[in-house]
Amino acid sequence: MIKVVFFAALREQLDCSEITVSSENITTVADLKLQLASKSEQWQALFANTSLLSAVNHDMVDSEQQIKSGDEVAFFPPVTGG
Protein backbone atom coordinates (compact mmCIF):
# COMPACT_ATOMS: atom_id res chain seq x y z
CA MET A 1 0.00 0.00 0.00
CA ILE A 2 1.06 3.58 -0.66
CA LYS A 3 0.08 6.42 1.66
CA VAL A 4 -0.82 9.55 -0.30
CA VAL A 5 -1.14 12.96 1.37
CA PHE A 6 -2.33 16.31 0.00
CA PHE A 7 -1.72 19.85 1.21
CA ALA A 8 -2.98 23.43 1.07
CA ALA A 9 -5.25 24.44 -1.84
CA LEU A 10 -5.08 20.95 -3.37
CA ARG A 11 -6.20 19.35 -0.08
CA GLU A 12 -9.17 21.71 0.09
CA GLN A 13 -10.16 21.27 -3.56
CA LEU A 14 -10.02 17.47 -3.27
CA ASP A 15 -11.67 17.65 0.14
CA CYS A 16 -9.19 14.97 1.16
CA SER A 17 -5.99 15.13 3.20
CA GLU A 18 -4.90 11.50 3.01
CA ILE A 19 -5.75 8.27 1.21
CA THR A 20 -4.20 4.82 0.87
CA VAL A 21 -3.74 3.33 -2.59
CA SER A 22 -2.81 -0.19 -3.60
CA SER A 23 0.69 -0.31 -5.05
CA GLU A 24 -0.44 -2.80 -7.70
CA ASN A 25 0.35 -1.54 -11.24
CA ILE A 26 2.09 1.53 -9.83
CA THR A 27 5.83 1.91 -10.32
CA THR A 28 6.27 5.68 -10.62
CA VAL A 29 4.76 8.91 -9.28
CA ALA A 30 3.30 9.47 -12.76
CA ASP A 31 1.44 6.13 -12.54
CA LEU A 32 0.02 7.10 -9.17
CA LYS A 33 -1.08 10.49 -10.54
CA LEU A 34 -2.91 8.80 -13.43
CA GLN A 35 -4.70 6.48 -11.05
CA LEU A 36 -5.74 9.34 -8.75
CA ALA A 37 -6.93 11.37 -11.76
CA SER A 38 -9.23 8.49 -12.77
CA LYS A 39 -11.24 8.81 -9.54
CA SER A 40 -13.51 11.57 -10.83
CA GLU A 41 -13.68 14.47 -13.25
CA GLN A 42 -12.75 16.85 -10.49
CA TRP A 43 -9.69 14.84 -9.48
CA GLN A 44 -8.73 14.58 -13.13
CA ALA A 45 -8.87 18.37 -13.55
CA LEU A 46 -6.85 18.97 -10.39
CA PHE A 47 -4.12 16.46 -11.27
CA ALA A 48 -3.84 17.90 -14.79
CA ASN A 49 -2.29 20.99 -13.17
CA THR A 50 1.36 20.85 -14.26
CA SER A 51 2.55 23.13 -11.45
CA LEU A 52 1.72 20.51 -8.79
CA LEU A 53 4.78 19.33 -6.87
CA SER A 54 5.38 15.86 -5.51
CA ALA A 55 7.47 14.34 -2.74
CA VAL A 56 8.32 10.76 -1.84
CA ASN A 57 9.26 10.00 1.76
CA HIS A 58 9.72 13.74 2.43
CA ASP A 59 12.04 14.41 -0.54
CA MET A 60 10.92 16.53 -3.49
CA VAL A 61 10.90 14.35 -6.65
CA ASP A 62 9.76 14.47 -10.27
CA SER A 63 7.06 12.28 -11.85
CA GLU A 64 9.54 9.66 -13.03
CA GLN A 65 10.52 8.80 -9.46
CA GLN A 66 9.96 5.11 -8.69
CA ILE A 67 7.70 4.27 -5.77
CA LYS A 68 6.87 1.09 -3.89
CA SER A 69 4.58 -0.23 -1.21
CA GLY A 70 5.22 1.47 2.13
CA ASP A 71 6.22 4.81 0.61
CA GLU A 72 4.56 8.08 1.55
CA VAL A 73 3.81 10.21 -1.49
CA ALA A 74 2.69 13.84 -1.24
CA PHE A 75 1.15 16.18 -3.79
CA PHE A 76 0.94 19.92 -3.22
CA PRO A 77 0.94 23.34 -4.94
CA PRO A 78 4.15 25.40 -5.22
CA VAL A 79 5.28 26.41 -1.74
CA THR A 80 4.75 29.91 -0.33
CA GLY A 81 6.45 30.04 3.06
CA GLY A 82 8.96 32.51 4.45
Binding site: F7, A8, A9, M60, F76, P77, V79, T80, G81
Partner: peptide, 19 residues
Protein backbone atom coordinates in the same frame (compact mmCIF):
# COMPACT_ATOMS: atom_id res chain seq x y z
CA UNK B 1 11.66 24.22 -1.35
CA UNK B 2 10.36 24.11 2.21
CA UNK B 3 6.75 22.87 2.25
CA UNK B 4 4.90 25.81 3.80
CA UNK B 5 1.76 27.40 2.37
CA UNK B 6 0.20 30.76 3.24
CA UNK B 7 -3.51 31.45 3.19
CA UNK B 8 -4.36 35.15 3.38
CA UNK B 9 -7.33 36.71 5.08
CA UNK B 10 -8.64 39.76 3.20
CA UNK B 11 -11.92 41.67 3.00
CA UNK B 12 -12.82 39.42 0.05
CA UNK B 13 -12.37 36.29 2.19
CA UNK B 14 -9.59 33.75 2.44
CA UNK B 15 -7.33 32.71 -0.40
CA UNK B 16 -4.17 30.66 -0.87
CA UNK B 17 -1.18 32.65 -2.03
CA UNK B 18 0.31 31.91 -5.46
CA UNK B 19 4.02 31.19 -5.63
Amino acid sequence: EAPFWKKERTEQGESWLDA
